[in-house]
Design a protein around this nucleic acid. Structure first.
Lengths: 351, 351
DNA sequence: TTGTATGCGTTATCAG
DNA sequence: CTGATAACGCATACAA
């Protein structure tokens, strides 16, 4: 056996004879102090003499003691775990946010429990119940489908951080992105390029984010003195195929348009394929703008013009806010303003 | 207040007067039986008379009792949670696998604890320690960087399911995908289309999957009587930008080639952009084949020819195997054979 | 079949 | 400052 300790084996030295895990009691015995003294230095609950502290540290190191979070959870009520609700763990957008949450929580000693709501309020309510049963110390809801009311109720039992809406309540912190401004920005970009007939591929009507983006689209058009043509607004469901279908629908209804603003990047990519299928070139025949700036969107063809949304940052900020809440402080955090990323899928209207 | 119970509130009725959570003891008292009898029917540990069972069921429903997993974990040693190690939670490929795991585990009452190894063996070892400290009932490792030896050691403490390698040990089940055959298939496809100068964008040399695919590439070439040209094999790191850089490298070294086989879809997409930047059209000037068949690859431009890898199924199978292991059975499961998905990024060599 | 008693590993509340 | 000791909520060996 090499002298280096093997991975996955913890810090326990080879001469540790313990069968089961090392307990506080064993540490106490080895250090010649009482069990509660060990617990205290572990939690920093009280001051202990330097002498004993060293003896204990030594014993901990030698035995390779590692506290049992389960027992801790039972006795202390804190599990050092945060529940995170998202609609689908494999969402390209929220994936980055989850990574942000993980990166922020890990150094603080917290673990995250990711659960998927599957776009259903019922499933989401189940998730909440599940997380509460697991005694998580807090819950982060990434753009859930739950009502504001339900969230407020939930916040009474444990801290809640929610993204995608603005909401004030005790123990509740919300982190919203200015989707309206983003929608306006995207539309204005196309307007600036000379486009006048701009189609809009919407998101689910139940989705507040999507509606805000639509509102931004309308506002930009109206500010430019252009009437919103309802025939140019087609529904979508935030995934690629719905973008493709939206384009089909647009083309079959024989609408005239020179640009498309898709409510998210996934639909934009689907739309690009749909246009290609109909022999329409992006951006030569139709300009295209998305929303989200997924990490892959710069590799789309053509590289997608879009509104940057800081998914990773969103996760970090949400987690950071949760940590603040847990510490009894009132979080202060704000998402950066929407920013247009002009790439190659949009160009000046020729003529 | 509406009569329907609010989400996130559990089944607890409004007349429950409990402050804190309902305990087994309270249920027992309400049903006029002993605490352990309740525990027994909860776990199906023993047979109980129909009469008491009904009384207990009633009490449970009325009080809205929900077992405390934390206490359960401490007392019984089972936490009903499975640790899942992946390299990055937001990986497009493993995201689907995570969803599969979640879908399979959830109905069985298990939760998953996702942790990221960040492509580092050290970090991965930390993950293992963390999961074991959390007393997970089992660990699923999605193509980890740990040594076989470390995994075997780990399997002594709790069941382990590992993907991306073939390994036999007690309490350990492995689920491998035939990457060699996949690599061979992809290359053969290009060969069949008449290509002779086929470049290969490799994955990390440390990555067994990537090496197998390379081996498949070589085997196909050799079987066709074509010498492998080392200059046509360029390194990559499995993400988009490395695909782009690989193409740059290839072009700058003025190699002649009519097709590229990229070791995964992400690099293929990057390569497509690289080619476009150099005014080379896919597939007219260069055919392109990827590997993985990410859900987005059919929306790439042009839709990507690739080797289908069942990520979601992989997750389900891994989780299912874990459930079997937990039940004391020897899992039997095998991944489907690699399958070529021919789309529009590859075409017959003209001339 | 059912109840009693003990323990799981910690935290927290007491006295000293 | 420190050490007993009682929870924490449940599972389980043991007794009835």
């Amino acid at each position: 056996m090499k002298s280096k300790s093997r991975p996955g084996e913890g810090a326990r030295t080879s001469r540790a004879k313990a069968q089961g895990p090392v307990t506080i009691e064993m540490v106490a015995q080895a250090a010649g102090v009482s069990l509660s003294t060990v617990s205290r230095i572990l939690n920093g609950t009280a001051v202990v003499s330097e002498l004993k502290r060293q003896a204990i540290d030594k014993a901990i190191a030698e035995l390779g003691f590692v506290p049992n979070p389960v027992a801790r959870g039972l006795a202390g009520g804190r599990t050092l775990s945060i529940g995170v609700i998202t609609q689908a763990i494999d969402s390209p957008f929220y994936g980055a946010a989850l990574r942000g949450i993980e990166d922020e929580l890990d150094p603080a000693g917290y673990n995250s429990l990711f659960v998927s709501g599957h776009w259903s309020p019922q499933a989401e309510a189940r998730c909440i119940d599940l997380l509460r049963a697991r005694r998580v110390d807090g819950i982060i809801v990434l753009t859930g489908r739950l009502t504001d009311q339900a969230l407020k109720v939930c916040a009474k039992s444990q801290p809640v951080v929610v993204t995608g809406r603005t909401l004030k309540a005790p123990g509740l912190f919300s982190l919203n992105f200015d989707n309206f401004e983003g929608g306006r920005l995207a539309t204005q970009h196309l307007l600036d390029l000379g486009h006048r007939r701009i189609a809009f591929i919407a998101g689910d009507a139940e989705h507040p984010d999507a509606n805000e983006r639509l509102r931004g689209y309308r506002a930009a058009l109206e500010a430019a003195g252009i009437a919103v043509d309802p025939a140019l607004v087609v529904p979508g469901q935030y995934h690629e195929v719905s973008g493709l279908m939206a384009v089909d629908r647009l083309l079959e209804s024989r609408q005239q348009f020179t640009a498309i603003f898709a409510c998210n990047d996934q639909m934009a990519v689907g739309a690009a394929l749909g246009l290609h299928r109909r022999s329409l070139r992006v951006p030569d025949d139709v300009s295209l703008v998305g929303f989200d700036d997924l990490s892959t969107s710069m590799y789309a063809f053509p590289p997608l013009s879009t509104i940057h949304q800081p998914a990773y940052e969103l996760g970090r900020l949400a987690a950071s806010a949760m940590l603040q809440l847990l510490a009894g402080k009132q979080p202060v955090a704000e998402l950066p303003a929407p920013r247009l990323i002009a790439r190659e899928s949009s160009r000046r209207l020729r003529g």
